[in-house]
């Protein structure tokens, strides 16, 4: 409890502590803390920038997707239209073909019928002549009665 040289001693000792602290302790710790602070600030800054970039990218992506969908829809519609056209064309062609075939068949049939009719007529004429010959018991002169026979054949 006495006032003595301890007082002076403490002043000196404390001054040394302060100098040591200010020279070797404070600066490195403070420097590290400030560096970390800077790093964290930079990190946060980068994160917010990345966030913004992400937002932009998402916006872009959404736009692109919308565009692609529109394109796809347009393509499908076009394809559908084209398909309809092709089907219609095919149908028309098929109908035309069918008509042509039917017409051809018809004409064939007509031709055949005509032929058959001619043949039949000729046969009938022959038969008629033969019949008449029989009936008349005489020969019918073909050349003499050809006019008559022809008339007859035409009537048949």
């Amino acid at each position: 409890m006495n006032f003595n040289a301890t007082f002076i001693g403490q002043i000196i000792v404390f001054a040394i502590f302060v100098v040591l602290c200010a020279k070797y302790v404070w600066p490195p710790i403070m420097a590290a803390m400030q560096e970390r602070q800077k790093k964290i600030a930079e990190g946060l800054d980068a994160a917010s920038r990345a966030d913004k970039a992400l937002e932009v990218a998402q916006h872009d992506a959404a736009g692109k997707i919308r565009e692609a969908k529109e394109q796809a829809a347009a393509l499908i519609e076009q394809a559908n239209r084209r398909a309809a056209v092709i089907v219609d064309e095919a149908k028309a062609e098929a109908e035309a073909e069918a008509k042509r075939i039917v017409t051809a068949a018809q004409s064939d049939v007509d031709k055949e019928r005509n032929l058959a009719r001619e043949e039949l007529r000729a046969k009938v004429a022959e038969l008629t002549v033969a019949g008449a010959e029989k009936i008349l018991q005489a020969e019918v002169d073909q050349s003499k009665h050809s006019e008559l026979l022809d008339k007859l054949a035409a009537q048949l």
Partner: peptide
């Protein structure tokens, strides 16, 4: 002595 020494510093 010590506290006053510190304070006087």
């Amino acid at each position: 002595n010590v506290t006053l020494g510190t304070a006087v510093f």
